[in-house]
Amino acid sequence: MRRPALIIPSVAVIAVLVAAWWVLVRVTDNAIFPTPLQVVTGMWELVKDGSLWEHIGASLFRVGAGFLLAVLFAIPLGLWMGWVRGAYSTLNPLFQILRPISPIAWIPIAILWFGVGNASPIFLIFISSIFPMIVQTTAGVHTIERRYLRAAANFGVSRYTVFRRVVIPAVMPQIVVGMRIGLGVAWLVVVAAEMVALRSGLGYLIIDSRNAGNRYDLVIAGMIIIGLIGLSLDGAMRLMEKHRSVRWRYAS
């Protein structure tokens, strides 16, 4: 539990920003840019007609599917690349080339391959979150301290036991960090992916609100909701770092 003394300043900063926003909109008498109150009313509109839950559900589904798919590939692949030198030297250059390509750049290809249904954003999330997780997992295997591997060798246990009782648990904290990064990137990308040619999702909500009559109150409402959900996703991933079997790795 965080102490109130730590929360108050951060809440104060947000309150000041919102107040400044309100004052600025009023002073400049801007016709398009909404006040905070208009944003809240807009959000309430979306809550009442139920479309907000649909958009959130659609976005979460795409992130969940793409991210889990990426986890399923990235962790075995990362462990293999970390453990087998040949796998690393063969695949790492390819991944290092693919990794810096922004997921946004994949959008045209995603549409070409998967059309404009759910498969496109799921693919984009997959491609964006798989690389950080591979890199973290591989680095995790590479940074296992030699003394532990030596101790394992000393007890003469099988390779399978070394892998199950030493390598995997030793890498687990890094895998958790990789998953946190991966999920963060995934959430970042779903919005971008949905801005292109879809009928649902928070990204769609933002673009559609602008196109259909400059509803900037809904644009900002969508942005705030994206931020809040991103925060909770990260918080959920942080809970994994609290588990006793991985806590040894993080500064206590």
Partner: peptide, 20 residues
């Protein structure tokens, strides 16, 4: 030849597995 459980090494830095 190779290290085995016939002789166990205990070193300065220790090697108790922190995840177990």
């Amino acid at each position: 030849g190779r290290p085995n459980a016939k002789g166990i090494l205990i070193s300065q830095h220790g090697s108790v597995f922190p995840w177990l």
